[in-house]
């Protein structure tokens, strides 16, 4: 099971990294989203994997680690805010300049 989670994190990271290195804003935003998943799952997994023991106090003796969960919960919400801001900037750049490439053109090319 551990290998599945670890490899999933790796695949999400690889996909995210590849898309982040694309030249247009939209794939880059997709890439950032994939990286967000990867990072969130990575952080979550730092509490190790526990099946069937949510950190809701009952008579049970073992619980999943609640701390990474709390951390990731806010991270998910914040990442929505961050995505929204990045998207807004990308959109503003596109609407303002009619261009959705992410790289600055070298000065000599711009002329």
């Amino acid at each position: 099971m551990e290998i599945l989670v670890a490899s999933a994190i790796g695949i999400l990271t690889a996909g995210g990294l590849y898309l982040v290195m694309r030249l247009r804003t939209f794939p880059v935003i997709m890439g950032i989203s994939l990286l967000t998943y990867a990072v969130n799952v990575f952080l979550f997994a730092s509490g190790r994997l526990t099946v069937g023991a949510p950190p809701i106090l009952t008579d049970a003796t073992t619980y999943a680690d609640p701390l990474p969960q709390a951390l990731v919960l806010t991270a998910i919400v914040i990442s929505f805010g961050m995505t929204a801001v990045v998207v807004m900037i990308a959109l503003g750049a596109y609407l303002g300049g009619d261009d959705d490439t992410v790289d600055d053109q070298p000065v000599e090319d711009a002329q």
Partner: peptide, 30 residues
């Protein structure tokens, strides 16, 4: 880009796999 991405993915996967199989070194505050 593919090579860099796969490198990054492998590294993250290896790191995650590594700690998933080991308990934390210091006691956690959880």
């Amino acid at each position: 880009d593919g090579v860099i991405a796969i490198g990054g993915g492998l590294a993250t996967a290896a790191l995650a796999f590594h700690y998933l199989l080991r308990d934390s070194v210091a006691p956690t505050i959880s």
